[in-house]
Structure formats: structure tokens, C-alpha cells
Amino acid sequence: MTYCLGIHTRHGLVMASDSRTNAGYDQVNVTRKMHTFVLPGERAFVLLCSGSLSLTQSIITLLGRDFDLGKGLASVANMYDAAREIGEQVRRVSEMDRAALERDEVRFNVHFLLGGQIAGQPPDLYLVYPQGNPLRATEDSPFLQIGEVKYGRPILVRGIRYQETPLDEAAKYALISIDSTMRSNVTVGPPIDICIYQRDELDIVHRRRLTDKDPDLIQIHEQWEQTLRKGVTELPPIDFETFGQKK
């Protein structure tokens, strides 16, 4: 299983992913799910992936080959076209591999999150589905998730605001969201890759990989649990007697 998320605010983007892959509980590995495509000063993309590792590797390889030749993501005119370019490579791999997979009852399962910016245009965030079609984040829905999304969603819904949330706070929300998911699903796990992209930076310079022994990750985990417990104890008491009388 996988959990990746992207957050889009007026200040830029936060992209984060776990690194655990598994084919059953006895075949657990660590694989990087964050990939970057950068032409400094011109364009910067961060791509997160979930689903079949063999399929996502094929798609990333094809995107990288074209990028190195100045094609594909290196030449698209805008972020929508960048998302469509990823979708085209998804369809290309689907044409090559889907029939063989489905003969053995294996689903063609890949999802991508694309965040980034092209010079002269605003940053943007897209989700690309297994069929190759893209979905764009909006000011009203300023985050997107792929993989094991349900455990980490509540903190993002409550906390992320496009106009108000600064990137350093968005990064904390991202780590809490992933931490909550790791506590609930053992198939999601560290290291955690996280990237902050500041609007108009046009390069990837703020990026970290946090292992399970990273002191910052440990502190965030412990302090969040303590803050949550403290918040619950400070909530007003539930008046069961008055409720019973009203019934």
C-alpha cells in the first residue's frame, strides 16, 4: 500500500509520500515514490506515484527519457498539458501491459500526483487516474491524495486553507496526515519524503527524507499525540442527565 499527498496553497506546494511497498505481509520493501523533473529557472515538477511498482517504474522511465531529450514534460506549455503528458504515458504502458496483466487477474492500477510550475504561470496540482485523465486541485479543495487516503484525510480537511495556510504549516499537516495513516495501516511506512515548493522558485531546493528514527519526525509524532489528548480533556463535559430528561 501507499500514501501520497499534495497540498496547494497560494504560497506554493507541499508534496509528501511514504516509501513502503509490499506484495503481501512477508514481502515488504522500501521504494522512493517521489520523482522530480527540473529545468532550473524554467520549470519544476514533483511527481508522486502509487499502485503497481512495475507499472509506475515503466511510466517514470518513459517520462524521464523524453525529458532528457527535451520532449514531454520538458516542453509542455502549461501544467494541464503536463498532466496530460503523464496520462499519455499511462495509456502507453496500458497498451503494452494491461492485457497480459488482466489475463492473470491483475488490475492495471496506477495513480499519480503532479505538482509544479512553469515560468510565467502559477503553480498547480493534479491527480492523474489509471485511465490517463487528470483532476485539478482547486481553492475549495486544495489537496489531493492517492493510495491509502482515508486515515490522513480528516486532518487535511480541518486544517488546510488555500488562502490562509503557510507552507511551513502545510508541511506539518502533511506529516501528521502521514503519521496518522502509518498508525492505522502497517503497509504504509517510512522513510517519508517531503518537499516544499515555494511559488516562483522554479527549482526543487527544500526537500527531506525522514526515517523512523529522525528526531523531527519523532517529535512531531509525540507532540501531536500529546496535544490531541490534551485537547480532548479540555472539551466541555457531556451532560447525559439533561439529555435523558429531554428525551
Rank of each mutant, 00 (worst) to 15 (best):
R136I: 07
V128Y: 00
P123R: 02
R92H: 11
M15K: 07
I176W: 02
G24V: 01
R209A: 11
L202Y: 04
E148F: 01
E222V: 10
R161C: 14
K247M: 14
S19E: 02
V38G: 05
I176N: 01
L125D: 05
R20E: 03
Q27I: 12
Q163S: 14
T181G: 00
G116S: 06
P166N: 13
T187W: 08
V188T: 04
G115Y: 01
P190A: 14
S75G: 05
E225G: 04
Q131M: 11
R158E: 11
L62H: 10
R98N: 08
F37E: 03
I204G: 10
I59H: 07
I59V: 15
T9Q: 01
A16Y: 00
L125P: 08
I7S: 02
F112T: 02
E95I: 04
I155P: 02
V128L: 03
Y173C: 06
A77R: 12
R199A: 12
S17T: 15
Q131T: 13
S17H: 04
R32W: 04
A77G: 10
A171R: 15
A23V: 12
G231C: 05
Y151E: 14
F243P: 00
I160N: 03
D203S: 14
S75C: 10
D97L: 11
I196Y: 03
Q117Y: 06
P154T: 12
Y3E: 01
P40K: 12
G231V: 06
D124E: 11
G120Y: 08
M1G: 14
R161S: 15
H221E: 12
C195I: 09
Q223G: 00
L5M: 06
T211D: 12
D216E: 15
K150A: 12
S58H: 07
D239C: 09
P130M: 08
L228G: 01
S180L: 07
H8C: 07
R32H: 10
M34V: 14
H8Q: 14
W224N: 03
F108Y: 15
D18R: 13
S52L: 07
I220G: 04
G12A: 09
L47V: 14
L202T: 08
I118W: 00
R208G: 05
T211Q: 05
Q57M: 08
S75I: 10
Y173N: 01
D104W: 13
V28I: 15
E95Q: 10
D66M: 08
M1H: 13
R153H: 13
C4Y: 00
I178K: 02
M182G: 02
Y126N: 00
L53R: 09
R229C: 06
C4T: 04
G231N: 10
T242I: 07
M96N: 06
A23Q: 11
S141D: 13
V46T: 15
